[in-house]
Nucleic acid binder design. Structure first.
Length: 579
RNA sequence: GGAGGCGUGGUGUAGCUGGCCUAACACGCAUGCCUGUCACGUAUGAGAUCGCGGGUUCGAAUCCCGUCGCCUCCGCCA
């Protein structure tokens, strides 16, 4: 076999006259009868090979090759004739005149051509993923992913973090996502769980004094999939000791700045920091998209002061979202109203301001003066629309936040850019309707806000935590917290969550015990690497940045996993399948 | 668990208010012709029981019921 000397895109006018060997796939073949062109494709791009009948053996070889055959070509780099250059290609000023052509592999006609794959049914693309991955557009996502990872590793290495691996065979813990279970053969009837995160291990490393840890960790969650959720994904997992929350935020923010600079040449602005309350009040979401226009308006006080209509006046909360410079039809206003109802609002009141008048869907019940008070409160200008929702505070804010986002999407008002922010001070607990009990908003190891510790037993839902998220353009990119390092406090949290003492001892006894042997204050964060790369690449789905992803039903059509297994395998691990 | 969208030669689509469909178009594929193409051109040709099952009807790609698969969203994802 001929050994490669150059990638396709490296063959250019600078090496004119040299003999090179290129290797790759036949991207396209153009047969002019007396003249055959081959576009040879490799990871770098394309280069043209041209053969004439006089070249006999080489011509015969190129005559017989077809799409996706694998070939090597040794030949001379020649400048193309005047006017025949292709400015689209880095190699477009030259072409290769072959001395020797080797066909290394023939190829069946592929189910789709790599260059067409973008429009092909995704199921088929996944089944033939190795062909799908031949297209350069997709390859570029993996080149970016590699650059991101290199930058991440360099940053952490340079800041004294140790890359430590933690087990993939761990134990199932209560709270959080459903675990993937792995049956144990040596201990029949017992199971490992694949980690949802290396959380406890990294905390134990802090107890050991590792001080700064990071890991590019594969983690697993057995929940329903989405475009931005796969059952297994990669976290940039980080933990550090003896750092204040602000120090941790600063450190992690500079990591993100570094990664964007190194991998894409993008200089980011400092990330604004807002509390969870501010996020909810301002955007109706704990992951605000700052590209989507102005904040929501709290009009409860304005209504109290100026409006007599009971529907508004007696609501515990009245909020508004303003669509600036928007002239909706009556039909569009109805669409917004229906959307608000679908999202759970009791109804929607709109105000449309135009020169000389402000129309309102509640015109019958609101006097012109009342309408004016509301319009003035949000600085409504001619051509602006105000949508009002009244009801319980957080559900209403949620509806308004959705309307705000949907408006920006539908009217194409999402501004360009990388709009990062920190959201801090999340609630420590949430109420789970489904389980009818308190659950951790982040995870049960999260440190409560120091001034709220006394409320843990008395008013748990009011307790703030020292937890923080990184949000980019409305997507949660990372989530972290300071951790509890006092065994007594950790026990209080567990029992507030309704875990029985025996249960605490059985599931987390080792952790509480570890904290009794000298635990440093510590905290950390985990970034969703796949999501980060997805957003950086401008991809719509995680599947575009994961080499072998799964479908929405958790299936890999290429390997055909998951699959049934031999009865003998089940017997070994002591499992019987229920019919 | 729920809602919506989609399923027609190898690929992407059209047809889908029932008969003119013996299923059309483009790409791909095969075989000729063609010495400067680069989405080459050109001629000819092969290739689909319209996801699967049932029903309605004289007649179903088209209507109805069920089912499977893919995608998106809600629930779920500490």
């Amino acid at each position: 076999m001929l050994g490669r000397t150059h990638y396709a895109a490296e063959v250019n006018e600078k090496i004119e006259g040299e003999t090179v060997t290129v290797a790759g796939w036949v991207h396209r073949r153009r047969d002019h009868g007396g003249l055959i062109f081959i576009d040879l494709r490799d990871r770098s791009g394309l280069v043209q090979v041209v053969a004439e009948p006089a070249q006999e053996e080489n011509f015969r070889q190129l005559d017989r090759v077809r799409s996706e055959f694998v070939v090597t070509v040794e030949g001379e780099v020649k400048r193309r004739p005047e006017g025949m250059e292709n400015r689209e290609l880095p190699s477009g000023l030259v072409e290769i005149e072959p001395h020797r052509v080797e066909v290394l592999s023939e190829a069946k006609t592929p189910p789709f051509m790599p260059q067409d794959a973008e429009s092909v049914d995704e199921m088929l693309r996944l089944k033939y993923r190795y062909i799908d991955l031949r297209r350069l557009g997709l390859l570029n996502n993996f080149i970016l992913r590699d650059r991101v990872l290199m930058a991440v590793r360099r940053f952490f290495h340079d800041h004294g973090f140790l890359d430590v691996e933690t087990p993939a065979l761990a134990r199932s813990t209560p709270e959080g996502a459903r675990d993937f279970l792995v049956p144990s053969r040596l201990q029949p009837g017992t199971f490992y769980a694949l980690p949802q995160s290396p959380q406890i291990f990294k905390q134990l490393l802090m107890v050991s004094g590792f001080d700064r840890y990071y890991q590019i960790a594969k983690v697993f969650r057995d929940e329903d999939l989405r475009a931005d959720r796969q059952p297994e994904f990669t976290q940039i997992d980080v933990e550090m000791s003896f750092m204040t929350q602000d120090q941790i935020l600063d450190m992690m923010e500079s990591m993100v700045h570094f990664v964007f600079q190194e991998s894409m040449g993008v200089t980011l602005d400092p990330f604004p920091r807002i509390t969870w309350h501010e996020a909810m009040e301002g955007y109706g979401s704990d992951k605000p998209d700052l590209r989507a226009g102005e904040r929501l308006w709290n009009l409860t006080k304005v209504v109290e002061a100026h409006v007599s209509w009971p529907i508004l006046r007696e609501a515990p909360f009245v909020g508004g979202v303003v669509f600036r410079d928007y002239q909706p039809s009556r039909k569009q206003l109805d669409i917004w109203t229906n959307m608000a109802k679908d999202l759970g609002a009791g109804g929607l009141i709109w105000l449309v301001k135009s020169p000389g008048q402000t129309r309102s869907s509640a015109g019958k019940w609101l006097s012109p003066e009342e309408v004016k008070e509301l319009a003035d409160a949000v600085e409504l200008q001619d051509g602006d629309v105000l949508l009002l929702v009244a009801g319980e505070k957080y559900p209403s804010l949620g509806v308004l936040g959705q309307l705000r986002l949907e408006f920006a999407r539908r009217e194409d008002r999402l501004n360009e850019g990388w709009r990062f922010l920190w959201v801090t001070d999340f609630p420590l607990f949430e109420w789970s309707q489904e389980e009818n009990r308190l659950v951790s908003a982040h995870h049960p190891f999260t440190m409560p806000h120091p001034s709220d510790i006394d409320l843990i037993e008395t008013e748990p839902l009011a307790v703030r935590s020292q937890a923080y998220d990184v949000v980019l353009n409305g997507t949660e990119l990372a989530s972290g917290s300071l951790r509890i390092f006092q065994p007594q406090l950790q026990s209080r949290i567990f029992s507030t969550l309704g875990l029985k003492p025996e249960e605490i001892e059985e599931k987390f006894g080792f952790l509480i015990q570890a904290f009794q042997y000298g635990a440093p204050p510590h905290g950390g964060i985990a970034f969703g690497l796949d999501r980060m790369v997805m957003l950086m690449a401008g991809a719509k789905s995680l599947r575009e940045v994961i080499a072998f992803p799964k479908t929405a039903r958790g299936v890999d059509p290429l390997m055909n996993s998951p699959s049934s297994v031999a009865l003998a395998q089940l017997e070994e691990v002591g499992i019987q399948i229920k019919k």
